[in-house]
Amino acid sequence: MQWRWEWTWELLPRFLDATGKTLMAAGGGYAIAVVLGLVLVLAQRTPFRPLTVVVRELVEFIRSTPLLLQVFFVFYVGPQFGINLSPWTSGLIAIGLHYGAYLSEVYRGGIESVPKGQWEAATAINMSTVQTYRRLIIPQALPPAISGMGNYLVGIFKDTPMLSVIGVAELMHTANAVGAQSYRYLEPYTMVGILFLAISLPTAFFITRFEQWVRRKMGM
């Protein structure tokens, strides 16, 4: 089997287009996860016990079941309850929910790394709980959380192929389609691998630099 360069170049625009879709799925899902994770972790820290227990169990449930199952669940089970969502919406919800649960654990680690004395100092200058989180706890919880958040950013990106199974036209979906038409899989899958690598590696590098920059900026 020979590598066909000409065909590769021919396919490239289509794959670049699909890369854009992959980035949109990863970015959109991550945006949901970042916000949802914060909601999930803060809900677990309210004094209202039933809420903390329910959210805690929800996070455990999401983290203990496969992403693929969650994607199928939202896309196929939803309609049976009258919730009809497009593949894109279903995919973003599933992936955002899944990674939101993981990110909430990263945030929790960050928040718990802030010394108790910071809360006490906040009380001593009479700050409210909201002010304490916004001004003191979250800014200090962020630097130690960045590397974990970065890992999951790369993770969500690499998990976007899961969305191909419900028909989101991202990279994997495109490669499958090309393969099925031409019966040649070498070039499409190789291209997918290279494109993923071309994005993952610089992203990981950038995250490390960003973490260093934030720590310096915050005087730590």
């Binding site: 004395g117 910071q118 006490e120 800014p139 915050m218 005087g219």
Partner: peptide
Amino acid sequence: IGMCFQHFNLFPHMT
């Protein structure tokens, strides 16, 4: 009421 602590508890991310 104001308070000072044994371990200062300054906010490390602020000057």
